[in-house]
Write a protein that binds this DNA or RNA. Structure first.
Length: 295
DNA sequence: ATGCCTGAAGGGTTCAGA
């Protein structure tokens, strides 16, 4: 079973990339974030296109901002939209949807950005992460939490730690909140698979950041229960960040062996692997680069 | 000192993103 997660940064804008990508990668389960459409608009934009490809849809969106979804062609049961106990800002936002797909509890999440560590939004982010931990803790252990965590787990997950000092995504409380979630037994499957690779999932659109491979790894697949031992491959689909009209995030993909009591299906090797070994010279070694900043 | 890029809403510009 192939599970993918992708912050598409507008479903509407990304259709010309999303549909060919589905046909190329053929994931069984797809978690989407930042769809930026209400559920009715989601169905009109994508409904026929995904049903003809065999996917069921669980969308949870709103106009303009946020929005998450799960596409699955291995079942889509017990759908829960939203996150029980989560704070709003001030109203609840469409940042989580869950469903059981092929025997695994799947969460597609878009964690609040946090903006700056002094902001109310930052406290909102931390409280939201606590609610996420509580909800995942109540569910089955065979689970995957997929999505845009808006946290780089370690300094190895940003191109230049010095460039991010004092900013969100790298602060200790955010990393502690992520660690508390992982303490439920969730494994970061890409980092486990590529412990020493320079591997990012997000690159700012500005200033040629992608071209220079100056990014962050903030999109994660966290797998619990018996799922981690089934991981056959895990990688970031960097190719999807290239070309015309990309999202600023790349998809993350994990391939699982069949469950122990299931049939063993064909195993397809990953079409691409993370590009460069950390410290291999070029792109982010010692060079000092100015980080794009908000005013 | 600042913009850099993109998307959305709504209106001829502003906010948000990370």
């Amino acid at each position: 079973m192939r599970i993918a997660t992708w912050n598409v940064n507008s479903l509407k804008q990304r259709l010309p990339r999303l549909l060919p990508w589905l046909d190329e990668r053929r994931p069984d389960v797809v978690c989407l974030q930042e769809t930026k459409v209400a559920d009715q608009a989601f169905a009109e934009l994508l409904g026929d296109q995904v049903s003809s490809r065999g996917y069921g849809v669980a969308a949870h969106g709103e106009a303009a901002w946020n929005g998450v979804a799960i596409l699955s062609r291995v079942g889509l049961e017990d759908v829960v939209r939203g996150l029980d106990g989560a704070p709003g800002f001030p109203h609840p936002e469409a940042r989580a949807v869950a469903a059981t797909c092929g025997g695994i509890r799947v969460f597609s999440v878009y964690v609040p950005n946090g903006r700056t560590p002094e902001s109310e939004h930052y406290h909102y982010k931390l409280a939201w992460l606590q609610a996420l931990r509580d909800v995942v803790a109540e569910g089955p252990s065979d689970a995957v939490v997929c999505g845009d965590m808006n946290i780089a787990p370690t300094d190895e997950d940003v191109f230049d730690p010095e460039a991010y000092i004092g900013q969100t995504h790298v602060t200790e409380p955010e990393r502690a909140a992520l660690a508390a979630l992982q303490a439920l037994g969730l494994h970061d499957v890409v980092r486990d698979r590529w412990p020493n690779e320079r591997v990012f999932s997000y690159w700012d659109y500005r200033a040629g950041m992608f071209h220079q491979d100056l990014g962050m790894r903030i999109d994660l697949i966290l797998a619990g229960g018996s799922v981690p031992e089934r991981v056959r491959a895990a990688w970031i689909d960097r190719h999807a960040r290239k070309g015309t009209g990309p999202s600023d995030h790349a998809p993350v993909i994990v391939d699982l062996d069949e469950a122990p009591d299931g049939d063993i299906g064909p195993v397809v090797p990953p079409p691409s692997a993370p590009a460069r070994r950390r410290g291999g010279g070029g792109g982010g070694g010692g060079k000092k680069v100015k980080l794009p900043q908000s005013p």
